[in-house]
Nucleic acid binder design. Structure first.
Lengths: 203, 203
DNA sequence: GGATTTTGTGTACGACGTAAGCTTACAAGG
DNA sequence: CCTTGTAAGCTTACGTCGTACACAAAATCC
């Protein structure tokens, strides 16, 4: 449907690319929120008419899906090959959370649009390896990783879904941030150590 | 703003109430999905013009918020006073999940619109009591409950966000359901037993 | 310099949320 | 019974959204 194997060099040269569109979409969302991400607004961000976008993406939802995939890729980190799986899992959780808090207006998007499954598996291959190195079956590893991912996303939803009280003066409300940080760590530790106990019992 | 202490009996009798509107909204969402829940569609569901709804709720978002509160209240169960907190927590998780899977199209709503905080605390008072009975500080209890709630919601998002493959013949795809059930139980057990270890170390 | 191919544009339509003002259906007071 | 007051529901209208469709522009190839 889009970007269909163009015979290179022919036709009017493209000023738009999928990547430029996705980057501009993230700019708009970060600056003005999800609702501001209309096709017209995205067009003006790129100096282009709204309808031009449809040459590269079939509809608005495809834009959102592309944003999701791009952001999730941002969240994944490299891991030393000697990191034990519980620490690797906690590290992934932390970097995923950092990405989400860095794009608070996009969190509902990540919640609504699942990451492309093949892309997700590819990005998480390094993390899966840490489980395999410990002799943990792939299925059990996926369960643990997905459970943590789902917790991180749910937690971020709760944090950004409750705007830090628009009538208090200080912008981030230091204490509120600390509250969410502590909650996050407590839940994460509980889940990771719970999996440690459970998965070790099997081995 | 709405339902402002009407002097009873005066004026045209109301065919609409907040409750009827919320119930109709849930019907529409369950039957046709979130996008179908427009003010006009909700009006026809109630045999009424769209603008009539604004006499009872200030805008569409208030309808959504009311739906969220109503559904969350559905999810909370009564607990025997002698249930230990780990079991009570797991029971709450299960009934919350059942509600979410009973209204799959509404799950993104619950994810986006936080439950009214006072209502939430009121509904969860019984569960909080189970922690207090074990001598666990209220703050720790809230952390554990919220962590589990966030996990359940995130898990439901993942399950309903990945429609069970529209090209396979069987509607619920038995194996997929079992997959999500097992994943849910594994993550829940990990988190609950993780909190058991953590909270007991303190006592 | 056409012909071909690809990209961006202009216009238009139907659906949405909702503001403003109007009509309708009651109860109360005379 | 009839007027007045009041609350509930209705009609109309506006601006914005996603996007279908037909067209214009800009490059390469023969």
């Amino acid at each position: 449907m889009n970007e269909p194997a163009p015979r290179r060099g022919r036709g009017r040269p493209a000023v738009l690319t999928r990547e430029r569109i996705v980057a501009a979409a993230i700019e708009v969302v970060d600056a003005e929120g999800l609702d501001a991400l209309t096709m017209r607004r995205l067009g003006t961000q790129l100096g282009v008419a709204a309808m031009s976008l449809y040459r590269h993406l079939p509809n608005r939802d495809a834009v959102l899906a592309a944003v999701v995939d791009h952001l999730f890729a941002e969240a994944v980190i490299d891991l030393d090959a000697d990191t034990p799986w519980p620490e690797a899992l906690a590290r992934f959780a932390g970097s995923y959370r950092l990405m989400l808090l860095g794009h608070p207006h996009a969190v509902p998007l990540l919640a609504t649009h699942p990451v492309d499954i093949d892309l997700g598996l590819e990005l998480l291959a390094g993390l899966l390896d840490r489980f395999e190195a410990a002799g943990i079956p792939r299925q059990d590893a996926l369960t643990a990783i997905q459970s943590v991912a789902v917790y991180v996303l749910g937690h971020a939803l709760a944090q950004v879904g409750t705007p830090p009280d628009t009538n208090t003066p200080e912008p981030p409300a230091e204490t509120a941030v600390a509250f969410y940080d502590q909650w996050f760590e407590a839940g994460l530790r509980a889940m990771v150590s719970g999996f440690e106990g459970g998965l070790d019992r099997g081995r």
